[in-house]
Design a binder for these strands. Sequence first.
DNA 1: ATTATTCCATAACTTTTATTTATAGACAAG
DNA 2: CTTGTCTATAAATAAAAGTTATGGAATAAT
Lengths: 295, 295
Amino acid sequence: MNFNHLRVFYESARELNFSRAAERLSISQPAVSIQIKQLEAMLQVKLFNKIGNKVFLSGAGKLLLEYAQRIFELENEAEKAINEVKEIKKGALHIGTTKTYAHYLMPNYISHFHALYPGVSIHLSEGSSLEMIQSLFNMQNELAIVASTEYPKPLQATAFGEEEVLLVASPDHILAKKNSITMKELARFPLVMREEGSATRKAVIDMFKKMRLSPAILYEASNLEFIKELLERGEGASFIVRSAVEKELSQGILKEIAISDVSITMRTNIVYVNEDSLSRIARAFIDMLLIWQDE
Amino acid sequence: MNFNHLRVFYESARELNFSRAAERLSISQPAVSIQIKQLEAMLQVKLFNKIGNKVFLSGAGKLLLEYAQRIFELENEAEKAINEVKEIKKGALHIGTTKTYAHYLMPNYISHFHALYPGVSIHLSEGSSLEMIQSLFNMQNELAIVASTEYPKPLQATAFGEEEVLLVASPDHILAKKNSITMKELARFPLVMREEGSATRKAVIDMFKKMRLSPAILYEASNLEFIKELLERGEGASFIVRSAVEKELSQGILKEIAISDVSITMRTNIVYVNEDSLSRIARAFIDMLLIWQDE
DNA sequence: ATTATTCCATAACTTTTATTTATAGACAAG
DNA sequence: CTTGTCTATAAATAAAAGTTATGGAATAAT
């Protein structure tokens, strides 16, 4: 069926007057006559009966009108729904992050975003940086928030905010007694380290390398909670991004040990396939991140 | 929204491959690309994301696909429904008749028609010949089955079958003793007559007039059942169409009195506004009447 | 790794479809 | 019986959809 014909039929059937239907459609009356004649020819059914000057719907016409009504209702609904997506009143955003970000960084951002766009549901998935990058390619996620700084070729990334990586330990730990410490001194103290592949670990090791040092490793663990548990018991010191230990610092459970000669930071990157193909929601999320990083 | 665009989008979204969508639509691939580009421009939303060689639906695209699905389902349903009307598998026929026909003539025809087209519902309305003719103009009825022989100008009519108008009386009535009677003799016997406006009355009176006679009237009544009641009690004789007294004749409650010099008949007419605007159902009904009249 | 193949985008051109203007004819109402 | 209101038709025009040809990017195959 030709929906152009159907739309002309629909208005004509509602008005039962071709001239007025033409006005509503902003076309000329002969256009209406022709379109309806064509539709009747296509369907091989008379849709209107004309008696004298008046137009009536035939049985088939009445039937078709019901369907036309439902079809154009759906059309309106669809346009409304699309507009809501455009205005970010509705929709979904799939973000992939690493564990640390998911736990300590994202909650704030997400609740802030939710306040701005209450109709949008955010789906957060966790995994390694590599997995999250992969998830961009198969469209499972639209954004990946990771710390690594190099990505496969077609990907694009935006840096937002800088995370301090703090040296922390129990207030009872020997290091906590010192006012500050140099990297060289630190190299003598065994550290608790994140697992291989962790961005934090990479940042720390890189910094040691840069100073032509190498750290002593007490334990290696992938679970951040577990590491904090160890530290609280006085078992060594570790580098952790500030946002992940903010609570423990303010509670006095852990203490920051100032490093006098360097400061380790990590850039957070929001990665996506292509700037141009970002949804409005994703764009809004990125915008929010960029504005919020300064606060 | 442009439904041409939507149809192209629909196939593309199902295939997630523009070239295959083009095949399904029997158009070239560039046509698909262009149509989708236009739709995206109209809606101001990206519907597809392209990553390398692969095509994915965007959030808005997924949303639109759902609506498109429902719209094209409705389209199919509509076409199916229209076809059922075309094949007279479904539909309604509104017929207007006079009381006598409705009671004695139509039941047979209608049950026969129903056997042929079980999906069609027949709506029978009763009224005077004039009212039924009126009902054609305001489209309340599509067909009128009446006996009158002249109609307002745009109407068309088909005669079908001929109804004998019989002189009947109780077997105990004086006239019933005679083997036959002439009109001239009959003019002396007071008759029970149908009301003014009745087609039967008109046929009888016309016949008397033609013979330069005028009948004696005993009673006048509009209700045929009432007239038969009177006759059965021996109160006079009356002219009644055969089909309306067939039962009483076979039961011997009433008796036909042969008229030797004339026979009164009434043509039944099926009247409609215009041959060309008749629905297939109405046409089928007329066809059935014309075939059935010979049996 | 180089080649072949798949797939979408773009441009210029053609065909098809929709629409317009002009006009006529049928009714209906004053 | 004339005037205004409708729809139908024809010829011409405008708009939309579609085509062919071609390029480039990405994947798959040799």
